[in-house]
């Protein structure tokens, strides 16, 4: 095991790529996140359609609980009017939670099934069947989400302040000058600051989630390299601790999205 440990780790950290280069697609990330998205939509849509006022089932209560939590967070933080934000926050929370939760499955479980299918059904070399099941440990997926959030931030800024208002804010904040000359001088500095701030938001969002999940996955892989009798000693506490991490990371991503949106919608 130790001799091919690096091979093992490398294999686990390689994506199922459709091809190579920029135009290749991480098929595993794409498929798993899509399936999880459908799971979320299916569960919530079913519960929403069957929702009863009297004698609600446990699943309905669970959904209501999550819904209330997200709704409260949005109401407390965001003071503008938006029909988009709360559903978006709910989707972000649930989807990221589900994607993170894939980390809880044994690291070899789905990859081995994939290898078996690839080998028996398609005659592929098992060494070249790759599957990474945690979409949020893929920097592409987290950046996709955070860049979508960036687009929403810009959209919110423009709809709430107008194109002119937003442009003015980009040039006159955070540094204010009293005279016209001072304003002109400070404009490029302000623009630079604002652009850095704007770019930093999606980067911090996506890298925070990616880093946490990647590290978690890596530790699971490392634990899987230990002799099987002792794996549980480290694996079980880490898995239990991970319950907290996956929930927290999903919550943080959602919460920061709400905060960024409310900052974008506020007038300075």
């Amino acid at each position: 095991m130790a001799s091919n440990a690096s091979e093992y780790i490398k294999h686990h950290l390689t994506h199922w790529n459709s091809s190579t280069g920029f135009w290749s697609l991480h098929v595993d990330t794409f498929t798993v996140s899509l399936i999880l998205g459908f799971v979320f939509v299916a569960v919530f849509a079913t519960v929403a359609r069957r929702a009863r006022v009297e004698n609600p089932g446990r699943l309905q209560l669970f959904v209501e609980m999550i819904f209330d939590m997200v709704d409260n967070q949005v109401k407390e933080t965001f003071h503008g009017k938006s029909k988009v934000l709360a559903p978006m926050a709910l989707t972000i929370f649930c989807w990221i939670f589900l994607m993170n939760a894939m980390d809880m499955l044994p690291v070899d479980f789905l990859p081995m099934i994939a290898q078996w299918i690839g080998h028996t059904a398609f005659g592929a070399d098992p060494e070249h069947v790759f599957l990474r099941v945690v979409p949020s440990a893929d920097v592409d997926a987290t950046f996709a989400m955070s860049l979508s959030v960036l687009v929403c931030i810009i959209g919110f800024s423009i709809t709430s302040k107008g194109l002119g208002g937003w442009g003015k804010e980009l040039l006159t904040a955070p540094f204010h000058a009293s005279g016209a000359v001072g304003t002109v001088i400070l404009a490029p500095v302000n623009l630079l600051f604002q652009l850095v701030e704007l770019v930093a938001k999606p980067i911090s969002l996506s890298l925070r989630l990616f880093g946490n999940m990647y590290a978690g996955e890596l530790i699971f892989i490392l634990i899987a390299l230990l002799p099987w009798q002792v794996q549980w000693i480290l694996g079980a506490p880490w898995a239990i601790f991970h319950i907290l991490i996956i929930t927290l990371q999903a919550f943080v991503f959602m919460m920061l999205t709400i905060v960024y949106m409310s900052l974008a919608a506020e007038n300075h």
């Binding site: 095991m1 499955l105 230990l226 099987w228 009798q229 794996q231 549980w232 694996g235 898995a239």
Partner: peptide
């Protein structure tokens, strides 16, 4: 046998 250890952890 690593799978067994993972299964135990799970």
């Amino acid at each position: 046998v690593s799978l067994l250890g993972q299964a135990l952890t799970f």
